[in-house]
Design a protein around this nucleic acid. Structure first.
Lengths: 241, 241
DNA sequence: CGCAGAGTTGATAGTCTTCAAATAGAGTGG
DNA sequence: CCACTCTATTTGAAGACTATCAACTCTGCG
């Protein structure tokens, strides 16, 4: 890993120093001056699970970066049935450029730290910095790839495969550096209800499939939330990736 | 609607005159000179249903615009189960910028006319024209919105709702100008098998749901492919949009 | 006219949901 | 520190929806 070496390090806003979004996230596209400008209107927030960051009811007037924790993006039918359509991890960007209303709700799934700034400020910078526009474009395309991957899961996989796919997804994000060789363990960022909403299943089915994986010796579960996958390759086979 | 007025109209490549992509599509971002440059390497093709335009096996070296017809984007599991993850209508853009391999297959669902050009040519122009990058960005975000809409359908809707949602989707595209007030009729661009792959169902279930809609007096079906929706609002209610 | 592929219909089976109840964890106040 | 409560999760039994298998019909076409 290379540490970014800035010429005038002292000028970088205190808010932005040691922020992951400045390296792998969208802020990496900004010059020090632009960072200073943006940080003038920026607030770092720490929010509890369940906090709604963006509602599909509102018009959006701010963007945010996820600094820590997991944010779930959801859609809801008139009668209340809900589907999680995406998970955002650090240092993902939250927002829908070039539109004023959101068609989805963004809600903290775990304790989350976000860095929020006014839509207008960033919109202005997009026009000035092609690199920033490019980064947002790339993130949009990655999210599109992920969404389509998940469409395959929702449309064609069995309950057992879906749960295995989910564990595999979380395992990949738990330690992106690691090779995912044999054993991996992590805390689930979602409740059973959230997992069900992500997989298009019920909590009972999710629970049953987890017990099945446990009884088949593929995973261990402690305190409901902590999972150990003994052999990622074997899990992948179950997930039909 | 404003008709784009070009200064040197005579210079517009013959290939591009009267092309919809020059107005609503990505080519609208290009200057006449850029159009000339791009059209030098461009080929207009007419292909039959089933023709594979992009394969997830290959590396991509070309992009395309859909000029007429419908292209389906699919993903397939190792054991052959398939899911349609998107439908592209004219003047949609086909391709995945900033990546060399495709994770999806693009295949003509109907007779299709496309305009294909080398990846390199367009990639170079993206760097030169921020407007082009912007249009591609917007299309990516729209596709992302559509993908997430469909995730809700796949994850949470019943078979009856899915089929109604599908008809509603096609009705919307059949005549984008029209207000979709009462009665609409159109030809289905997909076979029952394709519809099933789009909805995450089997062909039998799709067929049964169509018969149900017919018997309930919401639609009429002629020659299997031609559909008349008597009351779009009533269909919407069935779709739970 | 008959053949082939697409689509429909019927009977049955399986998977997942629904409803109900039991258990386990986490937080609270005595 | 423990009883108590509230919620999350697990487990069980029954039912619903969709898939599967099979036969039949329709449409387009040589």
């Amino acid at each position: 890993m290379t540490i970014r070496q800035d010429i005038h390090n002292s000028e970088i806003p205190a808010l932005c120093r040691s922020c992951e979004a400045r390296h792998r996230g969208v802020c990496g596209a900004l010059t020090t001056d632009q960072l200073v400008e943006l940080s003038r209107h920026t607030t770092k927030r720490k929010v509890d699970p369940g906090t709604v960051l963006v509602s599909d009811a509102d018009t959006i007037d701010s963007y945010a970066n996820v600094l820590a924790g997991v944010v779930k993006l959801t859609k809801t039918l008139p009668d209340g049935r809900q589907q999680i359509v995406g998970l955002q991890f650090a240092p993902d960007f939250i927002g829908r450029p070039f539109k004023h209303e959101s068609s989805i709700t963004a809600e903290a799934a775990t304790p989350v730290r976000v860095c929020a700034f006014p839509k207008k400020s960033l919109d202005r910078m997009i026009e000035l910095s092609p690199e920033l526009g490019h980064r947002l474009h790339v993130q949009a395309l990655n999210e599109l790839d992920e969404a389509r991957d998940w469409m395959l899961t929702l449309g064609r996989k069995t309950a057992a495969e879906r749960v295995a796919s989910f564990l595999h997804l979380i395992a990949r994000h738990s330690d992106p550096e690691k090779e995912l060789g044999g054993e991996v363990s992590f805390d689930l960022p979602l409740t059973r209800a959230d997992i069900a909403d992500f997989l298009g299943l019920t909590i009972e089915t999710v629970s049953r499939q987890l017990t099945k994986l446990r009884k088949d010796g593929l995973i261990a579960v402690e305190n409901n939330r902590h999972i150990t996958v003994f052999d990622v390759a074997r899990l992948e086979r179950r997930a039909n990736v």
